[in-house]
């Protein structure tokens, strides 16, 4: 019945927003907080509830990079690839993380749904370049070795 809690929460979100089609974006944000992504059938449900076409909801959900239609991992690693970080070789970091997590070229999430890696354009902490954020913790002047250790720590934590 674990699904029910989430579904009930979505109904509540729709109610709170008065089923107003103008509030589609806040609704999608709240629903993504519940599921950690936007399941297709949920988008169809939202479209029906707000009386707008599913194509329009899909359009909004795919326009903003904040929204994701694919399930994300439990831990989100955001690597900054803004100018400063890029110059400080953030691409090497990305490669290191991908190798560590055994991710293919176009894969962003591990098969065990533990990690998702994302690149972001600037975290506004250029002085600490290269920067990355794991979940809500910011890490500055990261090296491939440092990243590897951070990931190992999380893995150990998860095994417990």
């Amino acid at each position: 019945m674990e699904n029910y809690g989430k579904f009930d929460r979505v109904c509540q979100i729709l109610e709170e927003n008065g089923k107003d089609k103008a509030k589609l974006i806040p609704i999608l944000q709240a629903v993504q907080d519940v599921y950690r992504y936007l399941p297709e059938e949920m988008l169809a449900f939202i479209a029906s509830s707000l009386n707008i076409s599913p194509a329009r909801v899909y359009g909004v959900a795919t326009f903003f990079s904040h929204f994701t239609l694919k399930p994300k991992g439990k831990h989100i690693i955001k690597v900054c690839d803004g100018t400063a970080c890029h110059v400080k070789k953030s691409t090497l970091l990305i490669d290191a993380i991908k190798t560590k997590l055994k991710l293919g070229a176009s894969e962003m999430t591990t098969k065990d749904m533990l990690f998702t890696i994302e690149t972001v354009s600037c975290l506004g902490a250029c002085g600490l370049a290269p920067v990355m954020v794991i979940d809500n913790d910011v890490h500055g002047q990261v090296t491939p070795e440092k990243v590897s250790k951070l990931i190992d720590d999380i893995m150990k934590q998860e095994e417990k």
Partner: peptide, 13 residues
């Protein structure tokens, strides 16, 4: 969308 109110296609991405 405007004339037929069907909205079968829309912009995405």
């Amino acid at each position: 969308e405007e004339i037929q109110t069907v909205g079968a296609i829309d912009f995405a991405h």
